[in-house]
Structures are given as structure tokens and as C-alpha cells.
Design a binder for these strands. Structure first.
Lengths: 237, 237
DNA sequence: TCAAAAGTGTTCGCTATACACCCATGG
DNA sequence: CCATGGGTGTATAGCGAACACTTTTGA
């Protein structure tokens, strides 16, 4: 299946067999302290101009899918080197009405506080999961699958911390895990467990988000985590 | 990025921008009662003719990646409707020296006993993980990633049973989990735990694989498992 | 009669869970 | 002074890990 380039003639790229287009789409997760959110953009091109969609675009011929996803992410949020993870590739023959498009889907975990508007003029907005708008193509399916993958992955890697600011209260951490896993924990047990695990480093500073008692700030200690993991430890809830 | 078909001219498919080829590759896992194995084929085409590779091939323009993977699997092993799962898509720009090829990788769990030779003339052989040959392209990387994904997935789904015959002894089940997770369990604790979980159905028949005491055969009870799962239970080891 | 493998039972320690309690703050 | 939220301690039940015992069978 050789690449029979035939550029002289109208700058076309020609192949003996039909080739699909390949895109990278990004499900960008954020956390506002209470709820898990996802960043969507309003399409400024047809088809479905004006509809909400996942950020994404065509993969350039000399970049990997991951590089493509990171590029899209940067263009959309201004973030460099965010945590991204490939979770599924969607390839139903008719998922795009124009031509065959296969999309390699990534989810990104970003700190909402650090996201400024991207270069792109397109409107972007954070949505909670219970107020999602209608999405184009199969993007709702992609979103569901991303959520499911995140939920699984969080059992094996401390990825939750990517969604929190550098320093956070244990209450915030608990809210995050509750939002992702859709469960409720006893506040005191969660607190005790985190202290016992010793992968959080307590700061001297406190913060006062509720106007009530001051709360300690913590920082994730990756070295300590890796050390624990070595000894066959898994992050479980 | 419209599909500028231009078939009149030498049956070529032409596009305004370069398009990659897309293949589906299959990591076929089997279990012989003691060790996890993987099915490889000897390439009968260039490049790397005669080298060992993962079974796979180009996705047809009107089939999904999953359909493609199932087709490859059928051609290679003669198996219909085996358990397959997409685990990663490999897209490094130079992973194939000929042209840009993106591959959507699946792993398949098959019962070794049911695998006959496929239609394809190509030679196929089962390999244990400690006797893998040199593989073409980035297939060794794909294989490693498949192993890793299987290891994770087995915590969430009872996929191990796809690798065993319909009826099996608890000893065989233990060997399987030990092989996949690379751990050792106490024989008696494993036995007790399986009995307690009640997702295995004990048969009347016994079997005598070791020429010693007779061993009971068991069958996986999917209904019971789904019931347990509903109540927030997870398959853990 | 001895070794190997299957099946069952028991004990112990850890941890998940369910709580009670105290402190600080704002209204 | 009381409602709210943060931080710490404690009792209990259940499960996992370690291991003893019995039975069956082939050599």
C-alpha cells in the first residue's frame, strides 16, 4: 500500500486504497472544588456550526497522536505539558457524515485555575456532567467513555492530584474522589486514612474556605507515593 | 478535508492532505493451564518476511476497527466472536518504514483448546512470555502494553474465564491469576475465597490431572457475578 | 508407607467502617 | 450560645494471610 504521491497534479495526495482521516479529540476534565467539569467548545465551522463539541483536530502527518492532542490542548487552554492519557479510538464508519474519520481520544486532567482562554477565537465553556448540552457526532459517547476510563485509572495512579491546585485541603481531595467515583465517604475516615498513608505533606499554611475553622493545606508527595507503590501498594478507596 | 475521489485516473484515491493508513493488530492471549501464551505469525510478505509479528491488517473502509480485528482473528484462529478489547492506538510517525501507519491494537482472550489453524497459510505459533522471538516494527511494545492492560482489566471484569475451558479446576484458575498478575497465592486461601464468593458453580464431575486426588470441576456463573457486582462488589486479588 | 495434591477449618492481625468528642469561628 | 466545619481518637466486624489437619492416590 505504497504512498503514490502525485503532488504535481493539483497538490493531491493519492493512494491505491481509500484512507481514512485521523483526528485527536480531547476530553478536558477540571475540578472546581465541588464538581467534575468538562471543557467544551462551540464549533465555528460547518457542519454543526454553533454546536458544542470536544476540542480536537486532524493529526499532522509528522506528529504522533499524543503530540496532536497536546497541540490541540495548548491551542484551546494555553496549557503546556498537561497530563493527558489516551483512552479509546472511535472508528465507526459513519461517525462523521462527510468522510470516514477515525478519532483517537484522550482525556486531559488540568487545574482549572490555570486555564486561560486559548488562542482560538472559538467560545469555550466548562460544563458539569448534569448540565451537558447536545454534542456533535458521537462526542457524547466519547465523553461517557472518558468518564469511565478516568474512574478506572484512578484506582491505579494518583491522577486525581492533577486536577487539584498544588496545595489543597483534604476536604477538597475528598470532594474530588467523591465526584469522580460517585460515592460518599465518611469525612473522618477519609481524613484518617490520608494521614496514615503518608503520601500527603502537611503545609504550615492554613486556609479558610468556609469562614469557619481554618483548614490545613497539603501537598502531594510523589516520591513517597512511588516508594509505597514499590512495596506493592495501590491507591484504593 | 473532503474526499476528492478521482478514481477514473488509475483507480487512485486522492485527498487534499496526506492521510495515514490504519490497521488493526491483535494480541491473542491463551492459557495452557500453567503459563500465559501469545499467538504470533510468521510474516509471508515483505518487509521483514519470515519474521514474527502480531496478526493484523488494514481496516476496510466500511468496517469499524473492532470488526477488522474480529475478522483478522477469525482468519488467523478460526474463532468466531471471541472476547476482544481495544487497549491502545500506536501512532508514532515512523513506526512503519514504508508509509505512515497508525494501528489500533486489540487483545483477544481465547480458549487455546478451541483454536485450530486459520485459513491463512502463514505459520502461527504460541509463545510463552519468557521465550518471545524478535518482533517486527514496534510489536514488542504493543505486546508489553497489552500485557499491562490485561493485568489492569482483570481487576474490574471477570475476563480471566475467557481464557479457561468452560469447566476448570480451582487450581487452574489460580495458576491463571498467578500467571497474569505475576504473584503467588496460598493454595488454601485462594480455594476458600473462591468458595466464599459464590460466583463459581461446582459440578458433579471431577477430574484427575495430576494422577493424585480427584479435583472438582467448576463453571463460572455470570448471573451470580452480575448480581454481586450490582451490590458494589469488585473482583480483587 | 510415603509423598503429593485436593479439600476444609482455625487463628491472628490489620483495616475499613461507624461512630464520639473537642476545637475554632461567625452569626 | 449554638450551628457549622475541621481535626483527632476509639471500638468492632470482617477479611486476608499464615498454617494445621484430613483424605485420596500412585509409586
Amino acid at each position: 500500500m505504497e504512498d503514490l504521491n502525485n503532488k504535481a497534479d493539483k497538490q493531491l495526495y493519492c493512494y491505491k486504497y481509500p484512507h481514512p482521516s485521523v483526528t485527536a479529540d480531547c476530553v478536558i476534565f477540571g475540578f472546581d472544588g465541588y464538581k467534575l467539569k468538562v471543557l467544551l467548545i462551540k464549533r465555528d465551522v460547518n457542519p454543526y456550526k454553533g454546536s458544542w463539541a470536544l476540542p480536537g483536530g486532524f493529526i499532522k502527518i509528522d506528529e504522533s497522536a499524543e503530540e496532536g492532542a497536546l497541540r490541540e490542548l495548548r491551542e484551546e487552554t494555553g496549557l503546556e505539558g498537561a497530563y493527558i492519557r489516551q483512552f479509546h479510538t472511535f472508528s465507526a464508519p459513519n461517525r462523521d457524515p462527510r468522510e470516514r474519520v477515525i478519532t483517537i481520544a484522550y482525556y486531559a486532567l488540568v487545574k482549572m485555575q490555570e486555564v486561560k482562554g486559548g488562542d482560538d477565537a472559538a467560545e469555550a465553556r466548562w460544563f458539569a456532567f448534569d448540565e451537558l448540552p447536545q454534542l456533535v457526532f458521537d462526542h457524547d459517547q466519547i465523553l461517557r467513555k472518558a468518564e469511565q476510563s478516568l474512574r478506572q485509572q484512578i484506582h491505579f495512579e494518583p491522577i486525581g492530584f492533577e486536577l487539584l491546585p498544588k496545595q489543597f485541603t483534604i476536604k477538597e481531595l475528598q470532594n474530588l474522589y467523591e465526584a469522580i467515583l460517585d460515592v460518599r465517604f465518611d469525612r473522618r475516615n477519609f481524613y484518617n486514612k490520608m494521614k496514615r498513608l503518608e503520601m500527603l505533606e502537611q503545609m504550615k499554611e492554613t486556609v479558610n474556605p468556609s469562614q469557619k475553622k481554618e483548614a490545613f493545606l497539603f501537598r502531594f508527595n510523589r516520591e513517597k507515593y512511588e516508594e509505597l507503590k514499590q512495596k506493592g501498594f495501590r491507591l484504593e478507596f
